[in-house]
């Protein structure tokens, strides 16, 4: 059963006379209890999707499409109704844990803030949050609450933001590049944290990342994004071990463990997208058809893929 359904989501940012097409016609669904990963290079529109789910984009962004959550279209909800969903039903774990904590408030207050406006639940919630902090490998949570964010290490801050986003027991946790800016050891810790969230708390997660290791360890299904489009969507193990789309192949080969082979070229300008397949300029399989006709996303071997190459075969 799908808990969150994104249908034909497009996001554009007007910039001067041009429009930047950040996300175009993205559709996917997240089933209950699963961890859905979105991977792709920087600027492929991953974070914009995460932000647009909760309507957190700047006011000038033009969002079209639908996002269904429990039968409600999040994109057309009233602000007051949206506030009931933000943080309570869907919570977003922000991209940069160092910046996501207010430097002048003690950590305890920042956790309490989630329960603000709900006094009865505050005490109960704090107890649960302290328990959660212990679970997520944060030692001595009571003392931690009396400290300021700058007194914690990066990994601790990251786990604390995870706690904050989980403490209201949301139905969906959207984690936006949770391992960004962490050292390898803290990254390994983050993998543990997310595995734990997944196995013990049975949370549905949307994991937006470019850390392929994390995606491989944690995700059930993965969507690969390129230039604002989903190019491949399948089971995580299938996508990451037997990639079909040439871009996914390139992405995986560029991983240090697989030889650090860079993809030639650059991703296209989002103001003026190339004709045909968005990837054809960099694709080594590209054909005449690729530069003329934009490929539709098709079912192939149990997954979805956007490539002429497969349909030609």
């Amino acid at each position: 059963m799908s808990l969150l359904e994104v249908k034909d989501l497009s996001v554009e940012f007007p910039s001067g006379e041009n429009t930047v097409k950040a996300v175009s016609h993205v559709s996917f669904e997240i089933r209950e209890g699963e961890t859905f990963g979105i991977i792709g290079e920087s600027g492929s529109g991953k974070s914009v999707i995460g932000l647009s789910l909760l309507r957190l984009l700047p006011a000038n962004a033009k969002v079209s499409g639908r996002v269904f959550f429990q039968g409600q279209d999040l994109l057309s909800l009233k602000p007051s109704e949206l506030r009931k969903i933000r943080g309570k039903k869907i919570s977003l774990m922000p991209q940069n844990p160092a910046g996501a904590l207010n430097p002048v408030l003690k950590n305890g207050l920042q956790i309490e803030e989630v329960f603000e406006g709900n006094r009865d639940e505050k005490k109960e919630g704090m107890k649960k949050a302290l328990e959660l902090m212990k679970q997520l490998f944060l030692r001595d949570p009571e003392k931690l609450c009396t400290l300021y964010p700058h007194q914690l290490s990066g990994g601790m801050r990251q786990r604390l933001t995870a706690c904050i986003s989980l403490s209201f027991e949301p139905e969906i946790l959207v984690a936006d590049e949770p391992t960004k800016g962490l050292d390898p050891e803290a990254k390994a810790g983050a993998v543990d944290v997310f595995t734990k969230i997944k196995t013990e708390y049975k949370k549905t997660m949307l994991l937006i990342t470019h850390d392929l290791d994390l995606a491989f360890e944690v995700c059930d299904r993965i969507a690969v994004m390129y230039a604002g489009e989903i190019v491949e969507l399948d089971q995580a193990s299938k996508v990451l071990s037997t990639p079909l789309h040439p871009y996914t192949k390139g992405l995986i080969q560029a991983h240090p463990r697989n030889g650090l082979v860079p993809l030639s070229g650059q991703s296209p300008s989002r103001i003026k997208l190339p004709e045909g397949c968005l990837f054809h300029e960099r694709c080594r399989y590209s054909d005449v058809e690729c530069s003329i006709k934009h490929p539709e996303i098709k079912y192939y071997n149990g997954g979805l893929i956007r490539c002429h190459f497969l349909s030609l075969k």
Binding site: L54, L56, R83, K84, I85, R86, G87, K88, S91, L92, P94, Q95, N96, G99, A100, L101, N102, P103, V104, L105, E113, V114, E116, G117, T161, I164, S165, F168
Partner: peptide
């Protein structure tokens, strides 16, 4: 523009709360 403001909006905070609890103390 700081991220903790976004994070407060994400957890469902209203305008007045954000001004009182996040902006003024900073």
């Amino acid at each position: 523009k700081k991220e903790f403001i976004l994070s407060a909006i994400t957890s469902g905070a209203g305008d007045f709360y954000i001004i009182r609890k996040h902006i003024v103390p900073n």
